[in-house]
Design a protein around this nucleic acid. Sequence first.
RNA 1: CGGAGUGUAGCUCAGUUUGGUAGAGUACUGCGUUCGGGACGCAGGGGUCGAAGGUUCGAAUCCUUUCACUCCGACCA
Length: 442
Amino acid sequence: MRKLLVRMLSSKFRSYPMRTSHFLLATLKETPADAELVSHQLMLRAGMIRKLASGIYNWLPLGFRVLKNVERIVREEMDKTGAQEFLMPSIQPAELWEETARWEKYGNELLKITDRHEHRFCYGPTHEEVITDLARREIKSYKQLPMTLYQIQTKFRDEIRPRFGVMRGREFLMKDAYSFNLTEESLKEDYQIMYDAYTRIFTRCGLKFRAVAATTGSIGGNISHEFQALAEAGEDVILYSDSGDYAANIEIAEQNGLKEGDKSPDGKGILKTARGIEVGQVFQLGKKYSDAMNATVLDEKGQTVTMFMGCYGVGISRTVAAVIEQHHDEHGIIWPDELAPFQISIIPMAMHKSTRVKLASESLYKQLTEQGFSVLFEDRNERAGTLFSDHDLIGIPHRIIIGERNLDQGKIEYKNRAAKESQLIDNDQVMAFLKESVTIPK
RNA sequence: CGGAGUGUAGCUCAGUUUGGUAGAGUACUGCGUUCGGGACGCAGGGGUCGAAGGUUCGAAUCCUUUCACUCCGACCA
């Protein structure tokens, strides 16, 4: 124990940067044969994910850092609404699902398992039953309402046909929130609060998206909206007004007898279709679960009343894929600053031969990390082309290249991943320049 | 679950028709040259050819069964 401590304090553990030579940077030059979508191909090539089984993926360090960034944004925006984070079990007893009749109705998508005592469980695809059970035990009075709880957790839905990598995986990371309300008006207020929070979340993720009226499917309830990231690869079709606010999932639109080319029902503009990736969905559940499971509180008159509920989901792992669908070029991924696994990469040229380059690079690394930037230090003894290609692929937004030639002029090179050309910056201006250019997430 | 296809080195693939000692490129290791946009030479390591059974003197190759994975559809959202 003492030995380990001494080694950690004295060795490279402390002083070395997050460096590519010891980072699990599992990039692939060629596209794996079983990936169809650009996002799936790039996630594999960049070494973000690896498949373990159909629809089930490992998240390697690079991908995990992005996943964590989406999670952080979601958590920040949920906390802003006053929702409380907590955690439910992923394994759920059959009895709860039988109370709502979903043990049968949810179908084969529900992964059912049996323990050694022959007790039946499922791996949770969603958590309405568990939260409602918790709420009926713990929430007693109208004075506690409204109340919203959320968790960020791995879900499992046994899709008939998983596809497109984490876009339609079986196991996936999801944020699910549940609101409890005394009245329908209160529910509608919370619904709007969540709707607004989702708008902020997906905006921060750099997504172009539309919120569309949606059907409620096996979750149930009355009113629902999906947040659709616009992408040709999307599996959903939406109908939207080209100049008004109207937008609906194709199912809803068809139920209302609307089709492409029609006038928008709000009178503004013409309806057009687009494809989308569903990255979030919000539901006004009403009393579907609270009725079935008897989740009640006492109101101010001492009467027993059934609570209204809402539920609100964000597909966190799917959002990562959706962002890539919208942010890439022929060389690889182009991360928005808030999602990038690292904000800045430092690529020293011929560092293994030039002490000057090495010192300048390490010094800059130290300064940048002290300022709170996340920085990846490229220390592999590879040819420049290899390094540049890898960094293009993994999509770190801000790149600093340090070489002898420019050091002689007192300059370093900066290249934005999204830009075609790089630019030279005076050595003593670098910090100011980056502070100006890089968004630092809190 | 219906239809189509694929399983050979970490990755991309040849070899299977017509059975005869397991291959290429790339990646990886060592040495040397080179190195600001995926270099080159030499030397190496890495495979129960998805699995099981059968036919045969001999099976990656032929037969049977089975498993996994991908795509289209239905399903889900």
